[in-house]
């Protein structure tokens, strides 16, 4: 069970981060806070959450136990990299795309 938990930790973190940034974006675009009217502050908030999330991914990768080698080590590590890659790639539009 522990192996499974470590294996899915990276992608699970991506799922949380993706949902959080998407929710922030939706709230901003709904005009509750006005993404553009705040002079880009909302974008900064989203970018900040994204970067913090990337930091969490890196921390997770560093915290993964060394294990006994083989698949027990390889799979959690790969899961961690999958999460980091997915968060970096799917959320990088917070830096470049127009908001709404």
């Amino acid at each position: 069970m522990r192996l499974l938990a470590l294996f899915i930790a990276g992608p699970a973190l991506w799922a949380v981060l993706f949902a959080a940034v998407y929710a922030l974006h939706g709230i901003g675009c709904a005009g509750l806070t006005g993404p553009e009217s705040l002079g880009g502050l909302w974008r900064l908030v989203m970018a900040g959450v994204w970067i913090a999330g990337l930091g969490a991914h890196v921390a997770l990768l560093r915290a993964l136990p060394a294990g006994r080698g083989g698949a027990d080590r390889w799979l959690p590590l790969t899961g961690g990299w999958i999460g980091l890659g997915a968060s970096a790639f799917t959320l990088f539009p917070v830096l470049i795309a127009t908001s709404c």
Binding site: Y22, T90, L91, P93, V94
Partner: peptide, 15 residues
């Protein structure tokens, strides 16, 4: 859908 959300989901769809 707002532009940035389009980009999120487009990126995920490619990935």
């Amino acid at each position: 859908i707002p532009h940035m959300a389009l980009a999120f989901f487009s990126a995920a769809s490619v990935l």
